[in-house]
């Protein structure tokens, strides 16, 4: 049976050099990252090349993604949040594209690696933290002091708030990573059943129909998850950015 973990392996394509004894290589992951960037650029720039008044399908996709992210950001942060629009849009499109590419058989899923999702989440975390302090100064820490809490349980609430704030990058990154990882493993396991069962002869081929149906259904589910996780990551980013802009409520 095919190894369901094999699809997550990082393969070096060529070496770029060493930093502190650690080899920096251009890997299959790098290739898929740049592929995702190229795909997003192609959609957003190539798709709008015609500048049609009545959009073509591709242009409509580009416009829809623009408006989708803009509406998401505006509804949770407000108009002053629009300065983060390029950042949030890049996050959403990068994750969505990487997730969708990953569903294609034989491809690599960039977001199934914790280090990538952690880098994404830490980027959001640091943006929120630094911009929040830059914008609000000391008032930013009102984030940990909710309104209307009796004074005697305030220390407890503050501790909980600080812990929940610090654990944000963890939950933010692990959610995306675990979803992509688990989905792809499940998919691979069921697909592996199909091949190993059909190798058993006529009865096996008959028996392989069930996991094949399952694989088909799971692929559909994974498409949903790919979009949903990109959206969840984006909306959480928006909520966190809202904290940076409006702490204290």
């Amino acid at each position: 049976m095919a190894d369901p973990i094999h699809q997550f392996e990082i393969q070096k394509i060529f070496s770029l050099g060493h930093i502190g004894g650690q080899e920096i290589a251009f890997t299959n992951s790098s290739a898929y990252m740049f592929g995702a960037v190229a795909l997003v650029s192609a959609l957003m720039i190539g798709g709008t090349a015609g500048r049609h008044l009545i959009p073509t399908r591709i242009q409509s996709m580009a416009e829809l993604s623009y408006e989708f992210v803009a509406d998401t950001l505006r509804s949770s942060v407000g108009d002053e949040g629009m300065k983060f629009f390029p950042f949030v849009f890049s996050l959403f499109m990068f994750i969505l594209t990487a997730n969708l590419i990953g569903i294609v058989p034989y491809t690599f899923t960039v977001t199934s690696h914790l280090i990538v999702t952690l880098a994404l989440a830490l980027m959001v975390f640091l943006t929120v933290l630094l911009y929040g302090i830059y914008k609000n100064g000391f008032k930013f820490f009102k984030l940990f002091v909710p309104h209307g809490i009796p004074i005697y349980i305030m220390p407890l609430i503050m501790v909980i708030e600080v812990i929940s704030f610090l654990s944000r990058p963890v939950s933010h990154s692990v959610r995306l990573f675990a979803n992509m990882l688990a989905g792809h493993i499940t998919l691979k396991v069921f697909a592996g059943f199909v091949t190993s069962l059909s190798a058993l002869g006529a009865l096996g081929i008959f028996g392989a129909v069930l996991p094949l149906l399952m694989t088909t259904a799971l692929t559909g589910l994974e498409l949903l998850v790919a979009f949903l996780q990109a959206y969840v990551f984006t909306i959480l980013t928006c909520i966190y950015l809202n904290d940076a802009l409006h702490p204290g409520h």
């Binding site: 990082i10 992951s29 790098s30 990068f94 960039v110």
Partner: peptide
């Protein structure tokens, strides 16, 4: 593999 991925990721992003 972390360093390679991080470098690629930050350049790509």
């Amino acid at each position: 593999t972390f360093a390679s991925q991080l470098v690629s990721f930050f350049i790509a992003f």
